[in-house]
Nucleic acid binder design. Structure first.
Lengths: 387, 387
DNA sequence: GTGAAAGCGCTAACAG
DNA sequence: CTGTTAGCGCTTTCAC
């Protein structure tokens, strides 16, 4: 038989509560119940379904709770009700030993920041809080496992959680994958998935360069081997080139030297240098797989006295705020990251709502090409019209 | 007597586990224990203190856990161990009905973003995850209460949580206040506190304008009534003015019209308009209480054909990324927001470490004045050297 | 090194 | 509308 507080009083002469008060311990339902002269069930009801309690009783309980400084234990609640009211997000650990405290690091994190923002906003709308953690080394006691064990639903950015761990987690709770390709692995093909139209976006942008600006020699920079997103972008680039009959440029563009390992501004600058000093003719356009690199290239080109877009066209991908701020403003493909976070939450909430479980959902969010000055579509102004 | 799983087996003919497996329910310690032929205590030990279990046993347990897809329940853990491994943050709800989806909203949130980033990073270092929630309407079932009941420690941005609620929370768990003034309220004076040197920063900046640039007519914009941070900045501004003997300018600057309710770009533009069209002589410098407004003013001034800094000097406060991107780059006071988040976590972790409880700590983080083009200290370049 | 058993604080039937 | 009671899944003494 469990010794409830009531039993304790009989058992140890009622000292329990005295001691509690003296050491200023954390008040529980039992304390509130006793102080307001009701049962713990009623205290619970006051919080869970206030309308099911008579107004006078409710007042009394609330008063006692307030006097005691009572805050319900989320753990006990979660354990008893089998739900936490918390959604989780696991994102890549961007902390780069080389860039501790550097601004570049800041920019790199914008991607996760936006997703966090979107998820937080949507979660709030549904009454959920958001638990976030960067993925670190795995293992039984990893932060990821910690988080996974405390949430009702879990969003995971691509390649941040090992397949096996993810499989276990998804057995417990709904999981949605963010970015990356739809999991091919059969053990994960039941997961919902949200991605952006990487290939189509890069295709549209490239087509714009080839078709509208008449460019023929394009170089693509940023084919990181293990990033499916970048792979998809490259496919889009290639498709547009092939359609326009500019294959040669394509082949030249995937020289190993241009597989940037980090996709940082520094790497973008390096790529621009290589492209300018290369043996063959300089490409007419540098097509970067992200904005970071493109911005780095912009700087390198300025250093070399080359004008953008007159001497060479530069484009990025992502549509980070910075892309609009640099001069010339960067032509790029805008990804709706905030919306991605929101969609992820909506998907999770839907699964949690207990409606008839449906087939795994895979959303592909549309992107939009922002035609700005760096491809020659917009005048270069001195002061950006922000807002 | 509690019916443990063992008892259940006797009780219902061992169906419990069968059913569990069939409905693919969430595996628990009991399942892992049974499958690996040990007691639940041992399963627990494998996770909590692996070294206290014989290697062979450990392997067996881990294997079973993996086959079952076992993930420990954070709730049960937290309840039993009285700690969650999670820190919380409550920040203001910036969502403005007027700016849904607008870019301005984005910029406004940068402040919280940075703090989130700092806290996440520091929390991770200490093995904690971060639970975040914007403050909404209070009440017993508010998100804030939800969060407070699930964390080991709680950081709260100024004026996001009602005093009474905060008092209750701080009785349970360590709380650190971010920004704002040190709580004057005696019920909250035991809280740790982290702020930045608002007054000194604005003083330095103003002194720079008066002393180094010889400006005499300064207008201050942004005295929101209930923001202690802005109040402090204004005090710094006034002190510098008084010291330099330019009181008149000060008085004029606090006209009610210039008490901006929102501190947005739009408001900054409006303030610039008022200042330009005002009856008296136009001030030589517009000193804004944040970067947002200053950027708005920059745009309004360009619209009116006024050159910055030649015709009028403009300064901001915060040092958001945008301040460096606009042309002319904004002279401003940089606040170390990321560091603020990190300090908050360090403070919480220290309190949680169980060391001899010390006096409440109040940190005032130093700021630095970024002298850029908008006050005439730096050349206006076309392409910002980002990085 | 391992097991048995007592809760952690709350929710959710189920009675009344 | 309110009280009783049996757990939720795990950690943690205390024995062996």
């Amino acid at each position: 038989m469990r010794f409830h507080r009531h039993a304790c009083i009989t058992r140890d002469g009622g000292l329990t509560h005295e001691r509690r008060r003296i050491v200023n311990a954390i008040p529980t339902v039992y304390d509130v119940a006793e102080r307001s002269g009701v049962s713990i069930a009623t205290v619970s009801r006051v919080y869970r379904s206030p309308d099911s309690v008579r107004a006078a009783t409710r007042e009394r309980v609330l008063a006692a709770a307030s006097e005691l400084g009572y805050v319900p234990s989320g753990n006990a609640r979660g354990l008893a009700s089998r739900s936490t009211g918390v959604l989780g997000l696991c994102f890549p650990d961007y902390s780069d030993p080389d860039t501790v405290g550097a601004e570049d690091d800041d920019a790199a994190m914008l991607y996760s920041d936006q997703i966090i923002r979107g998820m937080e906003r949507a979660a709030r709308r549904h009454g959920y809080a958001l638990l976030i953690a960067a993925s670190l080394a795995g293992g039984p006691e990893s932060l990821v496992a910690q988080v996974a064990g405390r949430v009702d639903g879990f969003a995971v950015m691509a390649r941040t959680v090992p397949t096996e761990e993810l499989e276990a987690i998804s057995r417990r709770r709904p999981v949605v994958m963010l970015a990356g390709p739809r999991a091919q692995d059969p053990s994960l093909d039941h997961l919902d998935h949200v991605e952006v139209a990487n290939e189509d976006g890069q295709y549209e942008l490239t087509r714009h360069l080839v078709h509208d600006h008449g460019l023929r020699r394009l170089a693509y920079v940023g084919l990181v081997d293990d990033s499916p997103d970048v792979e998809a972008r490259f496919r889009g680039f290639r498709r547009a080139c092939v359609e326009a009959g500019v294959e040669a440029g394509v082949e030249a563009s995937v020289a190993p030297a241009l597989r940037m390992p980090m996709m940082t501004q520094a790497e973008g600058a390096r790529a621009a240098r290589l492209l300018c000093e290369g043996s063959g003719e300089r490409p007419e356009a540098f097509v970067f797989a992200n904005d970071q690199m493109a911005v780095g290239a912009l700087q390198e080109l300025e250093r070399r006295g080359l004008r953008v877009p007159d001497d060479v066209v530069v484009t990025g991908f992502d549509g980070i705020p910075l892309s609009r701020m640099v001069r010339p403003a960067l032509t790029t493909v805008r990804q709706p990251m905030v919306r991605m976070g929101e969609e992820a939450v909506d998907l999770l909430v839907q699964r949690l709502s207990g409606r008839p479980p449906q087939e795994p959902v895979s959303l592909m969010l549309p992107v939009s090409v922002a035609r700005r000055a760096s491809c020659g579509c917009e005048e270069t102004t001195v002061l950006p019209t922000v807002v």
